[in-house]
């Protein structure tokens, strides 16, 4: 994975963003993609490749901003993000299937 090789920055030094998912709120950093941080918070996300080429981890991005350290091969629909490779850059709100 692209992110796990990163040296971990202590959480207090890194920018922390809030992820709103329905009634849940999770804190995430910019050190790793959203997917691993959601999983660590006990929120399962659909995935397959975990490398940005299968689009299985696509979830709705209702508000806020994410970036991709490398351009994913999968098509990113407007209003969606690819959790396996998206780095959260602001507070965001996301949603799975309604």
């Amino acid at each position: 994975m692209t992110s796990t090789s990163n040296p971990k920055t202590p959480i207090q030094d890194a920018p922390v963003h809030r992820v709103l998912l329905g009634k849940k709120q999770i804190l995430v950093t910019e050190n790793e993609p959203l997917l691993v941080q959601l999983e660590r918070a006990g929120i399962p996300v659909e995935y397959q490749c975990r490398e940005g080429y299968c689009s299985s981890c696509s979830i709705k991005l209702l508000r806020g901003q994410v970036i991709y350290p490398f351009e994913p091969l999968a098509w990113v629909q407007s209003g969606y993000l690819l959790a396996c490779c998206a780095i959260v850059k602001s507070d965001i709100e996301i949603a799975f299937f309604d």
């Binding site: 991005l61 209702l62 508000r63 806020g64 994410v66 969606y80 690819l82 998206a86 965001i92 709100e93």
Partner: peptide, 17 residues
């Protein structure tokens, strides 16, 4: 390709929280 972080931007929506 971490060096290129921030060079590629998609998935942005207008509203902020």
């Amino acid at each position: 390709q971490e060096a290129e972080i921030s060079s590629y931007l998609v998935g942005q929506t207008d509203n902020s929280l």
